[in-house]
Amino acid sequence: MPIRRLLRESVPEATLAAVAEDVADRYGEPSAEFERLEANNWLSVPLVVEDRWFVKVIADQHSLVHAVLTTGRNIGAFSSGTEGFFEHFSTPVEMAQHELAATQAMRELGVNAPEPKEAFEHDGLGVLVLEYLPEFRTLDELPEAEIAAFAPALFENLARMHEAELAHGDLRAENVLVAPDDGEEVLYFIDATRVQAIEDAKAYDLACALASLTPHVDARPAVDAAREHYSTEDILAAREFLDFVNLRPDHDFEAAEVKGEIERAAD
């Protein structure tokens, strides 16, 4: 059975219904209607409860996959000439608690993220409750001209996180949402992970941002947008992670082209 299907079916429907009821009870909602979302997320089963709450249900299987992915990412970091900086969580509820804290930290910095509600344990499962954004598109779903227009905002928000010593750790187009806020479409950041060695993690984040943009935006304007918020030294540090990022299945870009533009910008 493919791993995505295995993980998607890791939590029975009856258990998901019980989790939805638990969430509804916590907020005084008499009904607990829920919808399981189709998502390429290996680390949780995502639900929407009563069209009000976005809920991630995390099982032991998801924690196991997180451990495997963390090991692989740290090996990749070694190949880039640095120590591994990705951290693993030992239980599903720890995974939920960390994402809650990371989301709250982003919002405190003025970075848009869904409002964090709570993280709790339900019969051994980790449950994360966030604000549900009913209208959104992921960054890579936009027309190329719109992606280019959002590039400066992407690096501005990323730099704000980095200045506060906060790294995202899993930045990719699927984790950057575009949603309306007071009539204007803005970027929202989701699925932050936990990292150590913050300087290396910042360079990795920056490499991931360039990798997310350049399938849709030419490398030169993407690098130039990054330079509005990052120094030449920062951009050169990100270059060292591009080959590693390019090995990940969720990134597909021309690393050599991006490296060339970084070298041009550094001259």
Rank of each mutant, 00 (worst) to 15 (best):
M1E: 09
I3E: 04
I3S: 01
L6C: 11
L7C: 06
V11D: 01
P12S: 09
A14Y: 11
T15L: 06
A17I: 07
A18S: 09
A20R: 01
D22K: 12
V23K: 01
Y27N: 00
P30R: 07
P30T: 02
S31Q: 05
A32F: 07
E33P: 09
F34E: 02
E35F: 10
R36G: 15
A39G: 12
L47Q: 05
R52Q: 05
A59W: 01
A59M: 02
S63C: 09
L64K: 02
V65F: 05
A67T: 02
L69Q: 13
T70F: 14
T70G: 07
R73V: 13
N74E: 09
G76T: 10
S80N: 02
F86H: 10
H88G: 12
F89L: 13
T91M: 12
V93T: 15
V93K: 11
M95A: 09
A96W: 07
A96R: 04
A96N: 08
H98V: 08
A101Q: 13
A101M: 07
E108F: 11
G110F: 06
G110P: 04
V111W: 10
K117G: 10
E118N: 03
D123W: 05
V127W: 00
V127C: 06
E135Y: 13
F136H: 15
R137L: 10
T138G: 05
T138N: 03
L139E: 06
E141Y: 02
A149G: 06
A149L: 03
A149C: 07
A151L: 02
A151Y: 00
P152T: 00
A153V: 03
A153T: 03
A153R: 08
L154N: 01
L158S: 15
L158E: 14
A159K: 13
R160D: 05
E163R: 14
E163N: 10
E163V: 12
L166Q: 10
A167F: 09
H168S: 05
L171P: 11
A173L: 01
E174K: 05
V176N: 02
E184G: 03
V186P: 06
F189R: 14
D191P: 11
D191E: 05
T193F: 11
T193C: 13
R194K: 15
V195W: 04
I198C: 12
E199W: 07
K202L: 01
A203L: 03
L206R: 10
A209M: 05
P215G: 08
D218G: 02
A219L: 02
A219S: 01
A222V: 04
D224S: 00
A225I: 00
A225C: 00
S231V: 09
T232I: 14
D234L: 08
R239W: 01
E240P: 11
V245R: 01
D250N: 02
H251Q: 14
D252M: 06
D252N: 11
A255T: 15
G260I: 01
